[in-house]
Nucleic acid binder design. Structure first.
Length: 576
DNA sequence: GCCGTTTTCGGCCCGACTGTTTTCAGTCG
C-alpha cells in the first residue's frame, strides 16, 4: 500500500471514530482530506520532502491541523490522535460499520449498551436475542445483522469487471424486453470502468415504476429482495450474491439521474458545489433555482454546459481534478476503444493458447485491426507450453505463411520470461530475429524488493525488449503484485524507450489506473494488450482501455493507437 | 477541521427506504 493510501485510511478511521463520538463536522473534514490525499498523483512523501508542512497544506481538504498529522506520520510512522482514539474504539469496532445497515449511530449504541467490541460479539448478541431488547431495535434488526454478517463472510469483496458487465448486460436486455421502460442503462462504477465492481446499478425511465419493480424483483435468479419501492429497489442474485440496485425516474429527470447514479460520489459532490456557486441546487431530479424552479435539460452534455463545463467522460468522474481541468479547457481527449489499431500480446496453440495462428489472425483482422503480434511463451515457461527453438522456428514460418493470406500486418513475437537474474529466456541471437519482444516475470514472484527491482530493470535495459508485460504481476483477489520499486521501474522503462503494458485481462488489469498515473509522470509510453488465449479473449480490450481512460491517457501515450508506419519509433525491429 | 470573486466566521450535498419510536432516526447511495 502506498503512503497516500495508508494516510487516507488513517484519516478515514479518525473520521469514523469521531462520528461514533458524535463530534460535529470534523468527520467530514477528515474524509475530505482522505479523499484529497488518495487522489493525488504525487506521493505525499515527495511533497513533504520538497515543501515541508506548508506544501502539505496545499493538498485539497488538508489544512494546518491535518498537515501536521501527515508530517507526524511521515516522521514517526504514527498519528498520536488515532492511537488515542483507538483506546476507546479499537479497529474491530470500526470494522462494524462495514456491515450492511450498520452506521455510526447504531454501532455506538451497541458498544455502549451491550459492550459489543467486534463482529463476533455482535453475532453472538444477535443469536442470543439481546439486541431486540434495545429500544429502536426489533426482531428484524437482529435478522438483518445476522444476514449482513453472513453476506460479508461469503462475498467479502468485489467482482471482476467482465462478470459485472455480463450480468448487467443480461439484466438490461431482459428489462428492456419485459418491463414498461422507455430508457434503461447500467450506471455506477461499472459505467466508470472501475477495476472491480461492488454492486450493479441500473437506471430506468418509466411511467410505471411499480410495474418495473414487479418485473425486476421477480426476475429469474433473484435470491432475495432487500428493498422494494416505486422508485428504488435492490435485490441479491443467486449468482455470487451479486447485489443489483435499480432506480426509476421520470423522463425529465433522466439526464440528471444519469450523472447522479454514475457517480462517483466525490464527483457529484463537486458538481453540486459548482451548482451552489451559481445559486442553484443539483439533485438526481434535476437542476433547480433557489425558488425551486426546474431548469430544463435533456442530456448529460447539456447539464455540464449549464454548469459552465463541458462533457466529462464517466471514467474521469472521480474528482481527481477533472472539473478544474474542464474549467480551464484542459481536459485531454482521452483514448477510446476504437482508437486501438492492434493487439500486441496474443497466444496460440504453439504455447498455452487454444486457437491456431490462422484463427487468431483472422479474428483480429475481423475486429478491424491494422496490425497484431503473436507472442507465445518462451522456452522456460514449461507449464504454459513454452516454445523451444525448434518449435519457435516452425511458428515463425507459419506466421509468415498465414500473414500472406491476410491484410492485417502480423508481427512475429514472443512473450519472453525474465529470468531470476534479469536475463531473458532466449539468447540475443534469437531475440533479434523477432519483430517484437514482450518481456515478463513468470517465476520467482517472491524475491526481495531490491532484487526484483534490479531484475526487471535489467530486462528493460536489454536492447531487444520492446514491451514490459503485466508489469506488477498482481492478480485481483488472488495475489498481490511483486514487491518491487515500481517508481524506479517505470522510470527505467521511460528512459529506455520501452512500452509498459496495460494488460486488459479482467483479473489482471495490470497496470491499473494508479500505476498508470505514476508511470505517466515519467512520460512513459503504454501499450494496451489483451493477452488473449483464444479469439474471445481479444474482446477484453475494452477493460484495458477503461483503465487507460481512467488514467487520462491520450492516443499520444498509447502506442497501439498509432498507425503501423509510426510504430517503428518505439519498436525498432518491426518490418516496413 | 477546512474553506472563501458576495465570506477569515459561519457554513459544510440531497433524497429514498426501512423498521419501529405513530412521526422519525438511521442508513445508503
Amino acid at each position: 500500500m502506498g503512503t497516500n493510501r495508508e494516510l487516507a485510511r488513517i484519516f478515514e478511521e479518525i473520521a469514523l471514530i469521531l462520528e461514533l463520538e458524535e463530534v460535529e463536522w470534523k468527520p467530514r473534514a477528515y474524509r475530505n482530506a482522505a479523499n484529497g490525499i488518495e487522489n493525488l498523483s504525487e506521493d505525499v512523501r515527495d511533497i513533504y520532502k520538497k515543501g515541508g508542512q506548508e506544501a502539505l497544506d496545499e493538498i485539497p481538504g488538508v489544512g494546518k491541523g491535518i498537515a501536521k498529522k501527515i508530517a507526524e506520520y511521515l516522521e514517526t510512522g504514527r498519528v498520536t490522535k488515532l492511537q488515542e482514539l483507538r483506546k476507546k474504539y479499537p479497529r474491530s469496532i470500526s470494522a462494524l460499520v462495514t456491515l450492511e445497515g450498520m452506521g455510526p449511530k447504531k454501532v455506538k449504541r451497541l458498544v455502549k449498551e451491550l459492550r459489543i467490541t467486534s463482529t463476533d460479539s455482535l453475532e453472538k448478541a444477535a443469536r442470543q436475542h439481546k439486541i431486540q431488547r434495545l429500544e429502536g431495535f426489533g426482531a428484524k434488526s437482529e435478522e438483518d445483522i445476522l444476514n449482513a454478517i453472513r453476506t460479508q463472510k461469503v462475498s467479502k469483496g468485489r467482482m471482476l469487471q467482465d462478470k459485472a458487465m455480463e450480468v448487467a448486460e443480461e439484466i438490461v436486455s431482459y428489462l428492456k424486453k419485459n418491463a414498461p421502460v422507455d430508457r434503461l442503462d447500467y450506471v455506477g462504477s461499472l459505467r466508470r470502468m472501475k477495476e472491480t465492481i461492488g454492486d450493479i446499478d441500473i437506471l430506468a425511465v418509466s411511467k410505471s415504476g411499480q410495474k418495473v419493480m414487479d418485473v425486476f424483483t421477480k426476475m429469474d435468479g433473484v435470491k432475495s429482495v432487500l428493498a422494494k419501492g416505486t422508485t428504488r429497489s435492490s435485490v441479491v442474485l443467486e449468482e455470487d450474491n451479486i447485489q443489483v440496485d435499480i432506480r426509476v425516474v421520470p423522463e425529465s429527470s433522466y439526464a440528471a439521474a444519469l450523472i447522479y447514479f454514475t457517480g462517483s460520489k466525490a464527483h457529484n459532490i463537486a458538481l453540486r458545489k459548482v451548482a451552489i456557486s451559481k445559486r442553484w441546487k443539483l439533485s438526481e431530479y434535476g437542476l433547480f433555482t433557489r425558488q425551486g424552479k426546474k431548469i430544463p435539460f435533456r442530456t448529460e452534455e447539456a447539464l455540464y454546459k449549464k454548469l459552465g463545463l463541458s462533457f466529462i467522460p464517466p471514467e474521469l468522474r472521480e474528482n481527481r481534478g477533472e472539473i478544474e481541468a474542464v474549467k480551464k479547457g484542459k481536459l485531454p481527449d482521452i483514448v477510446a476503444l476504437n482508437d486501438i489499431k492492434g493487439d500486441l500480446q496474443t497466444h496460440t496453440i504453439y504455447s498455452d493458447g487454444t486457437r491456431s495462428v490462422e484463427d487468431m489472425v483472422k479474428a483480429a483482422q475481423d475486429m478491424g485491426y491494422e496490425y497484431m503480434a503473436i507472442t507465445d511463451h518462451s522456452e522456460s515457461a514449461r507449464i504454459a507450453g513454452g516454445m523451444d527453438r525448434r518449435k519457435l522456428e516452425k511458428q515463425l514460418k507459419e506466421i509468415e505463411k498465414v500473414s500472406k493470406r491476410h491484410k492485417i500486418k502480423v508481427l512475429k513475437g514472443a512473450e519472453v520470461n525474465i529470468l531470476k537474474d534479469g536475463k531473458l529466456d532466449y539468447p540475443d541471437s534469437v531475440l533479434k530475429r523477432l519483430d517484437i519482444v514482450v518481456a515478463a516475470v513468470h517465476s520467482s514472484f517472491k524475491m526481495p524488493k531490491r532484487e526484483m527491482t534490479k531484475r526487471i530493470i535489467k530486462a528493460l535495459e536489454n536492447p531487444y525488449v520492446d514491451i514490459l508485460a503485466h508489469p506488477t504481476g498482481r492478480m485481483i483477489g488472488k495475489r498481490k503484485g511483486y514487491d518491487a520499486d515500481f517508481e524506479r521501474i517505470f522510470e527505467a522503462a521511460a528512459e529506455n524507450g520501452k512500452a509498459l503494458e496495460i494488460n486488459s485481462e479482467p483479473q489482471r488489469l495490470d497496470l491499473n489506473d494508479e500505476n498508470i498515473l505514476m508511470a505517466k509522470r515519467f512520460n512513459a509510453l503504454f501499450c494496451i494488450n489483451t493477452d488473449a488465449h483464444d479469439t474471445a479473449g481479444l474482446n477484453m480490450m475494452k477493460y484495458g482501455v477503461g483503465q487507460a481512460r481512467r488514467a487520462w491517457l491520450t492516443k499520444k501515450d498509447v502506442v497501439n493507437t498509432w498507425p503501423y508506419n509510426q510504430l517503428k519509433k518505439v519498436f525498432k525491429r518491426i518490418p516496413d
